[in-house]
Design a protein around this nucleic acid. Sequence first.
DNA 1: TATCGTTGTGTAAGCGTTTACGCATCTATT
DNA 2: AATAGATGCGTAAACGCTTACACAACGATA
Lengths: 346, 346
Amino acid sequence: MTIEEFARQIGVSSATVSRANHGRGRINPQTRQMVLQRMEELGFTPNLHAQSLAHRRSRTIGLEYLGHTEVLSDMFLIALARGIQHVLSEHGYTLLLNPVGVVDERESLLRRWARSRAVDGAIVVGDPDVSADWLRKLITQKTFCVVIVHHPPPPLPGIGCVTLDLSQGIAQVAELLCSLGHCRIGYIGSIEPDSVLPMLRQQIEARGGRLSPDMVVYAGRTPDDGARAACELVAKLPRPTAIFVRTDVLAIGAMQAIRQAGLCIPKDISVVAHDDVPFAQFTDPPLTTVRVDYEELGKSAVEMLLAMLERRESVELHRTVHTSLVQRATVAPPLHHKTISLSGGI
Amino acid sequence: MTIEEFARQIGVSSATVSRANHGRGRINPQTRQMVLQRMEELGFTPNLHAQSLAHRRSRTIGLEYLGHTEVLSDMFLIALARGIQHVLSEHGYTLLLNPVGVVDERESLLRRWARSRAVDGAIVVGDPDVSADWLRKLITQKTFCVVIVHHPPPPLPGIGCVTLDLSQGIAQVAELLCSLGHCRIGYIGSIEPDSVLPMLRQQIEARGGRLSPDMVVYAGRTPDDGARAACELVAKLPRPTAIFVRTDVLAIGAMQAIRQAGLCIPKDISVVAHDDVPFAQFTDPPLTTVRVDYEELGKSAVEMLLAMLERRESVELHRTVHTSLVQRATVAPPLHHKTISLSGGI
DNA sequence: TATCGTTGTGTAAGCGTTTACGCATCTATT
DNA sequence: AATAGATGCGTAAACGCTTACACAACGATA
């Protein structure tokens, strides 16, 4: 049913229907009520494409994920998308997802969406600093955009930025481990370059501890990678009393390997990981890990984007979301201490 | 840039540009190449809304999920969506997701999408047999639709159906357990009514075994529910030698509880679960479970839908996807046998 | 050379909305 | 009673694309 047909059926003009719908323009409140009621009854809904065409906006935003698409990487995308959707749908917007794992050969799907006016704005997650002009091209299309990154890019007009600051969570890790007396701390990284290792080291050293370079292993992304790294680490002598693992996914493998080496977590060795993916609470024992609130991340980004789209004045173009440690059951004081007291000396 | 502007810039009419774009209609191949090339150069992309309006189709389909939205339930939605996206994007379609967890108070968002022509068709997952007219309303809008369900609804024209048949996987579970000699088999269900229990029981009895009613516990959906159910089950005497758990999520809790009861998996008790969610391979020991190929499910559904949308003749309106057991490390022969041989009798 | 299909292109009428503008009708002012 | 401003509504021109139709140019046939 078109608006003309509907309007004729209820005995008004299409303009009146449209005005009733939006509540803008001069319209008799009585007429408006009548129109709205009959819309319900007859089940008329304006054609979205015609609306978008006339309005020159689609009330849709796109989400683009620049990054490696492995098995579990979409876990956090879900959380992100959920946070975004939540805010969006309150504002009558919809979300268009760039299919994860489907990469367009010619150009970014997002950019095509922007050019074809399929989206009014976009949220880009993953550091696109590799190609800053990637962004520039987007804003040329008058498409607003906010990026979710670790390191804020040089501020560009029309581009917002939400940065994820891992330092607080890392500081808490250092505090926990150091205060318990761990002094041989291992580190399993994921992929270089890595900004977390220096953070953690600094925090540990600030507390008088030390994270020695030979206790650092770079693994990869899968649980198997984590297992290999853990094996390497527990074979070292003296053995680390605690290990920080860059991601929960790596940690799963690492924990298995540690157990298979005949060690008990956390009695013999403590494990702290990062990300707090959904299954982290279900490992055995439940994993102590740094929680990244992706839902919050999504919310921040989309609120910023909406503010830009609605052309609100004075939107701050930079927010940061922090992380925090959630303690579960993979950390305990080092055995070390007891050993010393029992053996009566070094 | 509009098509008129672009056409004028390159010295042809808008019709020619349009024809070049679609490769339909009479157009000189040379002209076509030229137009396409200049499109790249000048970066012209047709306005999507205008296209959809003119075509009276949006090349977009919607995904609606009818069901309980708990913590982990979206795990399988992801897999489903990925399968769908994969096929869709090969055909130049896009997917609109009904925000999980955001329920519209007035009416289904999907139906509004259908009425506003935002989507050409829809995939509905979850048994909507509660409201069969729910579907009927959809097809009134000339919106094609395929449902993913356990029990096929009465065939309606314009509605396709992909059913998930769990029986094969369940049969394999029965076969595995019975052939190993398990004869006291416990069952942890999720929510009643439950179609899996009768299936499993029948398969077990067909192999001369037995699934006694007092070995059945209905838990709920969370790992904690699973833990409680497992406690109850292992406290029974004689203790079951194997337990089938309706979902992996329940199984996680169940396994923790079993271990805390001082029992060893699979030595003292075997566990088989259902769903094969991503973390099933990461439990300790890795979980033997029935794999449901959600990606395949999504693919089947979307292929069927596309066939309907493209008005292809003779599309079969019913497909079924089967399940199969993936053996990992939570099943072993019952101790029982050894016990008998050692103790020398019953 | 006149006629006829064929081929490539342009013109213009949609597609279903929104909204600026104009025209009645009405109350409030002189 | 004549006028002025409000108020409510309809008419029609966009919005940017597709496509049926018309038309010119062309080579092939008579």
